[in-house]
Design a protein around this nucleic acid. Structure first.
Lengths: 220, 220
DNA sequence: GACTGTGAAGCCATTCACAGCT
DNA sequence: AGCTGTGAATGGCTTCACAGTC
């Protein structure tokens, strides 16, 4: 079997290319070159070609890529040719916002359960969903074959919620905030930490005054 | 002048170390080694030492680092020894959640203005702040010496909001969602795209079934 | 002529391994 | 003995440059 490692940065960019291609498709564009994609999303043409080359040959030399086809291939690679049921734990401000977030639905992510352990929140309706007690997680996960979980609870509760989700069979977690969590090797975890992002900005604002060479390039 | 480039990944990790150190300090811990920090936040000890080495020598050989001192140095490096006034554009679900987000206040980020162009939202109160019309951005930015802006509006409005903020003098932007924006070179932009994060998860779930060697390591 | 696909080169970040200090 | 600080080695991602195809 051919062994290959795909950089995570490549996967992130595929997600970006994918949405650019969907926009082109809606505009009726038939063909696109790596240079046009590159310009549209702010990377180099070689980067676009290299990213795609990890997965096959999708273009035609001298011509470019068929927008509809490439768009479909990338969705396939990302696993987005299906709908993904998702459970969300945490019905606070952030959880509520995530529930309503259009970007998830657009990409095939359906939140099928919202949970909390706060009696004041349980029973509330958010976007047609009733907030359920944490104890119902295993049942909802099982009934809906849920593999993805989002954790939007205070830092101190993140680990125990992760444990519940993992025990229920969820295989991949998205967490928010600074909590560092421990899960079995076969569970995938990614984190979003908004303070880190702001601190990257303040770092740059501070150091560019002192020493221009500290300036950094964005990572994604 | 000594020329140095600091990897952005290093800055992200400093932010993580910083919060770990604050926790240790609250627990009354006086001294910590690179190995203990490494274990606490899930990186290698060499990585911790290398990250710190970009900025100076903060430790004592044979002993380790003084928790309070190191904590302070890192805050200094990140520019967090001051409070940062921030403006937020977009008073929808996400904007509301960001306004209430404790993690910002904890790190010295104060949202001093919330703006929207939706008449239904203008005048509403969110966390002691009245939602103001976009037209008031320049005034609030000027009065509060605001250098940081957060944009939590629909993709289609992101660029024009960025233009308003830049024209008002904001120097660094945090945007949400898939919009690719263009700003002058001296403005720093970072982006948070939640769909990308979920798509990294589905990519991994899909490909680990087909080909285990596709498995990826997290980037941050 | 235009554009893709790709090996090679270049560059950047992480890890190693050890000298240096307490 | 224990731990930091750092040059050297490694590994991985990006860019280059060109052969291959339409």
């Amino acid at each position: 079997m051919k062994v290959m490692r795909v950089p995570e940065a490549t996967v992130s960019r595929l997600s970006i290319y994918s949405r650019f291609l969907e926009r082109l498709d809606k505009l009726g564009v038939i063909t696109v070159s790596s240079g046009e994609i590159a310009k549209g999303v702010g990377v180099s043409p070689a980067q676009v070609r290299k990213d795609l080359a990890y997965f096959g040959e999708f273009g035609t030399r001298g011509v470019g890529y068929n927008v509809k086809d490439l768009s479909h291939y990338i969705l396939k690679i990302l696993g987005l040719t299906q709908q993904w049921p998702v459970v969300l734990v945490g019905a606070g401000n952030l959880g509520t916002a995530l529930c309503a977030y259009r970007g998830f639905k657009d990409r095939g992510f359906n939140i099928v359960g919202v949970f909390d352990n706060d009696l004041l929140k349980i029973g509330k309706r958010i976007q047609e969903l009733e907030v359920l007690p944490i104890e119902k997680v295993p049942q909802v996960v099982a009934e809906n074959n849920v593999r993805l979980g989002i954790i939007a609870v205070p830092q101190s509760a993140t680990q125990e919620v992760a444990d519940v989700l993992v025990k229920s069979g969820v295989e991949a977690l998205l967490t928010f905030g600074p909590a560092v969590i421990h899960v079995p090797d076969n569970v995938i975890v990614r984190n979003v930490d908004l303070s880190i992002k702001l601190e990257i900005l303040t770092f740059n604002l501070g150091f560019r005054e002192l020493q221009p060479s500290y300036w950094l390039e964005p990572k994604v």
